[in-house]
Design a protein around this nucleic acid. Structure first.
Length: 571
RNA sequence: GGGCCUGUAGCUCAAUUGGUUAGAGCAGAGCGCUCAUAACGCUUUGGUUGCAGGUUCGAGUCCUGCCGGGCCUACCA
């Protein structure tokens, strides 16, 4: 039995995430966690809301709430949605937790002691009306290059020229529109990532099995221009983790907080401490997952994230870990994803374009979304959600191939033998062939799941479902029953077992349907099959079962058309 | 501007890393079945692998150029 530590990129606290966010991190992480648990491994699956930063402050202000209250509320909303999608976190934490405050300050102190922190005085734009420093992209003005009037302080979206906020003509605050701006000096801490460059490079080079998407982004940042740049890890904000050197004050940094990208990954660790606190566990219980000197040396750590997160997970966070000089667990495998587009364009939070997690659950159960999203995960390139494709895939795969199989088997049995597993008859060549074919397919499915090749795994699972229909068609118990009831009973018994097996194999993708089947067949738990042969004899003759309700109702053309309009955006 | 990814059947994607005749699912066509959510099974149509060159006994795969799509480019997270 192995020990697998799994983290999903932390969803930002600001608002409800769309399906593209979901499929890029939390959902595939959940698939992996469920599969590894099913295989009997010890799993620690952690996620949390990422709560600091300017957008959180602004969203709270817009909602007319203190930022702490806003975050607490939004955390609950997101936690509820996570439950709705059956994301099986061992703990869903908060980057604003006391544990993260402590650990972030502790690690910053360690980095300072190691000489990896530099104090830099810089000049930043301050908005007097807003009473705050403005990040570059929160300053708008006229582009000096092309004259576009809504250029941002970091880059002009019209001509793509990189800008400095002071380049802008008629600069104004993007928050209030105020032009009462001035440049002020402010001091910040920088993490000397450049000093870690060689170490990081060697480390990345050693990860030959990582997705190209992951390593190519890391390499680019390591080698681009003058190489990896130092990075500011503090900000002039009220909401965040106060800058301290361990327990001690940090002279000159009063009133400042750590940058959200510094403290967010540290929450991966702190989240485990939250888990322990929330479950009455000891310090040692969580540290055995994270400290290689306290039991984590045999842990395999896998991270899931969208491609935009890769630099922080391949370079910044490892710099923090390595630079601390303490034996915290480094990531072993990073699974990164491209983007999911929506019907010919991007998902857009501001324009309400696309499907958001709450809306998705309001129209269909989570299994539908889980299946489509995972079986179309943007692994090799960006992928696209269209309602036509969603309707076709879900109706065919879930309703026809899987759902109808369960339906025809259980209803046939009920009408000919009653609602108990029939006895009598024996397996013949056809059953032996099925066992052999199934063994191969299950092995292939397991291989893809181990490799976290999600679309390929989904295709294998679907092929396993298809085998049930093929078998039934060939065995034709509805004909055989007329002349040889015992033979028909054997076929039916095997087919019922097949349905029960599907519950086990499908659980990582569609946990609710798996649970429905588990109950229908009176199984106490969903144990991974030791062999196809054994799995197909699991339900004993005479054992009662229930005919489950329709597992997956089909999506009608009317529904599809209505949703297509409802989620088109520009609301 | 620089970099990375990508282009394969009407659609969504494969192709054991250079190896026989480029494969699946969906959609389409035909046949079969009647247990089942008008579901299922079998058969089948469909490709100058974006374009043009090159390397090689052999190229979807490697090289060069062009065309198209996408992403990143460090103070949003």
């Amino acid at each position: 039995m192995a020990r697998i530590l799994i983290t999903s990129a932390l969803p930002y606290i600001n608002g409800i995430k769309h399906l593209g966010n979901l499929v890029g991190s939390q959902l595939p992480a959940d698939l992996h966690a469920r599969y590894m648990r099913a295989r009997g491994h010890e799993v620690m699956f952690l996620c949390a809301t990422d709560e600091h930063g300017t957008p959180a402050e602004l969203a709270a202000a817009k909602a007319g709430q203190p930022v702490a209250d806003y975050c607490a509320e939004m955390h609950e909303v997101q936690a509820q949605l996570a439950r709705g999608f059956r994301l099986s976190f061992d703990h869903y934490g908060r980057s604003s937790s006391p544990q993260n405050h402590w650990l972030t300050q502790h690690l910053a102190g360690r980095l300072a002691d190691a000489g990896l922190i530099e104090e830099v005085t810089e000049r930043q734009v301050y908005s007097i009306a807003d009473g705050r420093f403005l990040p570059d992209r929160y300053i708008e003005g006229t582009c000096p290059n092309c004259g576009y009037e809504r250029a941002r302080g970091d880059q002009c979206e019209n001509c793509t020229k990189q800008l400095d906020p002071t380049d802008l003509i008629n600069p104004r605050s993007a928050i209030s529109g105020s032009t009462d701006l001035e440049v002020r000096e402010t001091k910040h801490l920088y993490l000397r990532q450049s000093a870690m460059r060689g170490k990081l490079n060697d480390w990345i080079d050693s990860k030959t099995d990582w997705p190209i998407l992951t390593t190519s982004i890391a390499k680019k940042w390591l080698n681009d221009g003058e190489g990896l740049q130092d990075r500011g890890i503090t900000r002039d904000l009220d909401w965040g983790i106060p800058v301290k050197k361990g327990d001690a004050d940090w002279p000159g940094m009063e009133g400042k907080v750590f940058y959200v990208w510094f403290d967010a990954p540290i929450e991966y660790i702190a989240c485990a401490a939250e888990w322990a606190a929330a479950n009455g566990r000891s310090e040692a219980d969580w540290r055995r997952w994270w400290r290689t000197d306290e039991g984590a040396d045999d842990v395999r750590y896998v991270q899931f994230m969208g491609k935009d997160n890769v630099p922080f997970h391949t370079l910044s966070f490892p710099s923090t870990i390595m630079g601390s000089g303490e034996p915290w667990k480094l990531v072993d495998y990073i699974k990164s994803f491209n983007y999911l587009n929506y019907d010919g364009g991007q998902f857009s939070t501001s324009q309400g374009r696309g499907v958001f997690m709450d809306q998705a659950l309001s129209i269909l159960p989570s299994d539908y979304w889980r299946w489509w999203l995972l079986s179309h995960a943007p692994e090799s390139g960006d992928s696209e959600f269209t309602w036509e494709n969603f309707q076709a895939s879900v109706n065919k795969d879930l309703a026809d191939v899987l759902g109808n199989f369960v339906s025809r088997v259980t209803k046939f049995c009920r009408s000919k033998f009653g609602e108990t597993v029939p006895e009598g008859g024996a397996w013949g060549d056809r059953e032996a062939a099925l066992v052999a074919g199934l063994s191969d397919r299950i092995a292939a499915y397991a291989r893809q799941m181990e490799a976290i090749e999600i679309r390929k795994a989904a295709a294998e699972l679907r092929a396993i479902w298809v085998m049930g229909n093929e078998y039934l068609q060939e065995a034709a118990p509805w004909t055989v029953v007329k002349s040889d009831p015992a033979a028909a009973a054997a076929v039916t018994r095997l087919a019922l077992n097949l349905a029960a097996l599907y519950a086990v194999l499908s659980e990582p993708f569609i946990p609710d349907a798996a649970e429905t089947l588990r109950e229908a067949f009176g199984l106490d738990r969903l144990a991974w099959p030791a062999s196809a042969e054994a799995a197909l004899s699991r339900l004993a003759p005479g054992q009662p079962f229930r005919v489950p309700d329709v597992l997956f109702a089909k999506i009608s053309d009317d529904d599809r058309a209505e949703w297509q309009i409802r989620f088109a955006g520009t609301r």
